[in-house]
Design a protein around this nucleic acid. Structure first.
Lengths: 213, 213, 213, 213
DNA sequence: CATGAATGAGATTTCATTCAT
DNA sequence: AATGAATGAAATCTCATTCAT
C-alpha cells in the first residue's frame, strides 16, 4: 500500500526517450566513448532499465538508425520517384530541403554519427545499403535518367552524376564532423547550396557562345 | 640459416614500421578498437617496444597524420599556387592526381582514418586546420579567384566553389568509409572524376543557346 | 542451505569493509606493493567493486587515514585541552592510553602505515598537518605551558618538550616498523612507558640533594 | 682501433657512484618509485651498466645500507664501550654528534630511507638487527648500566632507558620523513637536543628539594 | 666494459552486462 | 517495471631485466 501509480508508468515512451538520450551521448562521445551509465542518466532512468528495452549498446545505435531512416522511405522519396518534367526543380528542392535539415544541429548529428561510426558497428553497413543505397539512390538516378531522356539534361552517366549532385552535401557533413563546425554555419550551408546549384546546372566555364563545350 | 635473433635492434626504421602497423590496424579496427598488442604484433615487436617510440596510442595517430600530411605542403601545392592561365587545367590535373592516389587502398585509408576519428583525438582538429584548411584551401581558392578575374570562369564565390569542386572526392572517401568499398572501385573513381569534371565545367543543363540561365 | 547468492548487496557496510581489507593488505605489503586484486579478494568482493567505492588506490589510503584520525579530535583532545592542575596526571594518562592502543597490532598498524608511506601519497602530508600537527600538538604544548606557568614543571620550552614526551612512543612505532616487532611486545611497551615517565618527571640523574641542577 | 682509452675507465669508482645515485633517487622517489633508468642516468651511465655492478634493485639498497652502517662499528662505538666515569658526558656527546649528522640532509636521508622502506626489502631486517640492535644497543645499554652501578644514574632499566634517550632523535627522523621537514630545521634539532638532555638528566618536575619523589 | 633497444609479466582502471531486490 | 550493486574481462601503460652489439 505504498504508493499508487497514478497512470501507466509511460512504458511506451521509453524506447524513444532512450534513443534520444543515446543519440545525444553518441554525438558527444562517439559510440565507443559513450557509457551506458551516461545514456541511462540522461534518459532519467537507471542502467538496468536501458537493458529492459535494448539488449546492448549496439542495439541502441541500430535503433537510432532505424528511427532516422524509416521516414525517408515514406516521405519525400515517392514524390521524387513519380516526378515528371524538368528534374532541376525537384533536385533543387531536394538539395534545399536537405540543407534545411542539416542546419539543425540535432539533425546534422545523425549523419555525422553514421559517418563517424561507419563500419565499426556490425550490421551498420547492411542497414545503410538496404535503406539508403537501394532505396534513395535509384530514385535520384531515375530522376537524372528521365532528365537526360527528356532532353532537360545533357547526356551524363546518371549514377556518377548523382554523386556530383549530392557530393558537396556529404562533404559538408564530413567536414563539419572533422572540424567540429557549429550551428552558426547554418547560413553558409544555404549559400553553399545556391552556389552549387548554380554551377551544377550552368557549369563552371564561362560563356560558351561558340556553341561547343 | 635464418638467424635466430631474439630481437633485431633497428632503432631508425622502427618509428616508420610502427606507424605502418598502426595505420593498418586503425584502418581495420578503428582507433578505439585497435589494441596496442595488435599493433605491436603486426610490427613484429612487443608491446613495450611500441611505447619506446610512441608515448601513447594517441601519439601513434598523430604520428601517422604528421607523416601523411607533411609531403603535401612541399609537393603539388606550390605549383598550383603559382599557376597562371586557364585554371581548368590545374583543377583537372589536381582532381585526377588525387583520384589516382585514392585508388590505392593504402592511401585511401589515411583520409578515411581522419574522417573516422575526426574529432575524437585531441589536437587532431588543430593539425587539420593548420595543414589543410590554412594551407591547401587558400591555394585552391586563389586558383578560382584568378580564373574568375581572368575571365576563364564565371563569376562564382571562390570559397563555396572550391567545395563544389572537391565535394564529390570527399564524399567518395566518406562513402567508401561508410560502405566499406574496396579496391575494385578504383576504376569507378576515374569515371566519377571524368563525369564530375564534365559537369563542373559544362554544367548539368542542356544547351543554353537560347541565352537563358 | 547456505544461500548461494552470487553477490550480496550491502552498500552501507562496504566502504568500511573495504577500508579494513585495504588496511590489512597495506600493512602486509606496503602501499606500492599492495594489489587492488588482493584488497578486493580480502574484502570478499571483486576488483570492480572496490572502484565503486574508492576511485583509486590513493583514495583508499586517504579513507583509512580519515577514518582513523577523525575520532581523535572529538575524543580525548578536548579533555586534555581543558585540564587544569598538575599536568603530570594527564600526561601520564595520555601516554598510557596511547601505549594501550599501540599494544593492539591492528591499531599499531595505522601509524606504522602512516610512517611507511609518509610522503609518498600526495595529500597525505596535508591531512597530517591539519589533523595532527595543528590539532593535537597545540593541546599538548598548552598542557606543558600551563604546567610551567603554575609551577608544576620546570621552565622548559613547551614545543621541544612535547617531543621529549612523545618521542619514545613515536620511536617505538618506528622501530616496530623497522624490526617488524610483533604482538608479544605489548607488555614491553607498558614497561617502556613506566620507565619513560619515571625519567621524564624525575630526571635520569641521581640524587640532587646538594642543590645543583 | 677507434678510440684509445686513456686510462682505466674508472671501474673502481663505479660502485660508489652508483650507490650515491641510488641513494639520491631512493630518497626522492622511495624504493618502489625509483626507476633503474633514473639511477643510471643520475650516475651518468646506462641502465645496463648498473646491472654490471649490482644484480638487482634490491642489491642496490643493500649496498647502500652496508656502506652506511659499516663505519659505525669501527667508529665511535668502541670508544663509548670503553668509557668509564659519569655516563652523562658520553651520552651528551653522542646525542650532539648524531644531531650534527642529522642536520646534514644528505645524511638524514639514510635513516629516513631505512625507515621508509623498512621491512619491504627482504634481508633489511637482518642487517639492522645484526649491525644496529646487536652492536650499537649493547654499547649504550652498557653505558647506562655502568652509570647506574657507579651511582651516577638512578636505578633505571638500562634497556628501556636507552629508548628514552634516543627516542626523540628517532622521532625526529620519523617526523621529518612524514612531514618532509627541510634543511632549515637543522638549528631546531640542536635546540631540541639541548632541551631533551636537560629534561633527561634533570627531570621534568620542578624542584624536589623537599624530598618528595 | 659499456650500451640501450627490446622484452613481457603485471598493475591499475574502465565499463558493458547481469541479477537479487 | 525498475533499480543499482556487483562482476570480471579486457585494455593501456610501466619498468626491471636481458642481451646483441
Amino acid at each position: 500500500m505504498k504508493s499508487e501509480k497514478k497512470f501507466s508508468r509511460r512504458a511506451e515512451a521509453r524506447p524513444d526517450e532512450l534513443l534520444d538520450a543515446a543519440m545525444a551521448v553518441f554525438a558527444e562521445q562517439g559510440f565507443a566513448g559513450a557509457k551506458m551509465e551516461d545514456i541511462a542518466r540522461r534518459a532519467g532512468v537507471s542502467k538496468g532499465t536501458v537493458y529492459l528495452y535494448f539488449a546492448s549498446k549496439e542495439a541502441l545505435i541500430e535503433g537510432i538508425i532505424q528511427r532516422a531512416v524509416a521516414p525517408i522511405a515514406s516521405g519525400a522519396l515517392p514524390q521524387l520517384a513519380a516526378f515528371e518534367g524538368d528534374p532541376r526543380l525537384p533536385i533543387t528542392m531536394l538539395l534545399k530541403t536537405i540543407a534545411g535539415l542539416l542546419s539543425d544541429p540535432a539533425k546534422l548529428a545523425i549523419p555525422r554519427l553514421f559517418l563517424r561510426e561507419g563500419m565499426n558497428i556490425p550490421g551498420m553497413a547492411d542497414i545503410y545499403r538496404r535503406d539508403v543505397l537501394d532505396k534513395a539512390m535509384p530514385v535520384l538516378t531515375g530522376l537524372v535518367e528521365r532528365g537526360v531522356a527528356s532532353g532537360h539534361l545533357r547526356a551524363v552517366d546518371p549514377d556518377l552524376t548523382v554523386r556530383s549532385i549530392v557530393g558537396p552535401l556529404i562533404a559538408h557533413v564530413a567536414l563539419s564532423e572533422i572540424f567540429g563546425i557549429r550551428p552558426e554555419d547554418g547560413l553558409a550551408l544555404d549559400r553553399l547550396i545556391d552556389n552549387h546549384i548554380d554551377i551544377l546546372f550552368g557549369g563552371l566555364a564561362a560563356e560558351r557562345s561558340d556553341g561547343t563545350p
